[in-house]
């Protein structure tokens, strides 16, 4: 089956190809769902790794998200493309995991440095060790919402409206969170100008 649902040439074909598979998966066709998982797992893993900062946690989040998608498929009405729908589910799963990881702290409170295994990944090695350490620590101090909004905006390059839908808050609130995150992170980098 996988052979006949081979790789897609372009996005339009991919979306059209998803359509039939989604209908089948919603009716309980596991093979159709497996093709969808294959197709979307790379992008979802990349997103989750950027949000969670570790590969292991990203895999757990994506696995949970796909299972949740499988269970919700019968109710999926196709208002958004399947990929967009999944993107939201993964974002929400990661948001919940980030919230659970570190209980919401007062922003002025001194947060503990992130444990090494929780290091927020997308920090380039080009920076000095000390700069990376400071940046990683600052990322660990972001609230779950700030982190998610900032990653989706600055690293995923998503428009504010898309982030607002994915996170379930107003675009103005997304802007405010992205700004706070930029503020906190640039502050941490000031010493390394």
């Amino acid at each position: 089956m996988n052979a006949r649902w081979g790789p897609d040439d372009d996005e339009e074909t991919a979306v059209a190809g998803d359509l039939l598979l989604v209908v089948r998966a919603a009716e309980g066709d596991e093979e159709a769902f497996e093709v969808l998982v294959h197709r979307h797992a790379p992008a979802m893993l990349q997103l989750a790794e950027r949000l969670m900062g570790s590969r292991a946690e990203a895999e757990d989040a994506v696995q949970d998200a796909f299972l949740s998608a499988w269970r919700s498929l019968p109710e999926y009405r196709g208002e958004a493309a399947f990929g967009t729908w999944l993107y939201r589910i993964v974002t929400n799963r990661c948001l919940n995991l980030l919230r659970a990881r570190r209980p919401a702290t007062d922003l002025d409170a001194v947060a503990e440095p992130a444990a090494p295994e929780h290091q927020s990944s997308p920090v380039r090695a080009a920076e000095s060790h000390a700069a990376v350490r400071d940046l990683v620590q600052a990322m660990g101090n972001l609230s779950a919402e700030q982190k998610v909004c900032w990653v989706l905006r600055e690293i995923e390059g998503q428009p504010y409206e898309t982030i607002a839908q994915a996170v379930g808050i107003r675009p103005e609130a997304v802007r405010a969170r992205v700004f706070r995150a930029r503020r906190m992170l640039t502050e941490a980098m000031v010493a390394w100008r």
């Binding site: 790379p42 992008a43 990349q46 997308p122 380039r124 600055e154 690293i155 992170l185 980098m189 100008r193």
Partner: peptide, 20 residues
Amino acid sequence: ADLEHLRAAVLPPAAPPADI
């Protein structure tokens, strides 16, 4: 410049998702 410094520090190398 501060924002650009931050972006330069965090922007991931362009790894295509297909390689994951």
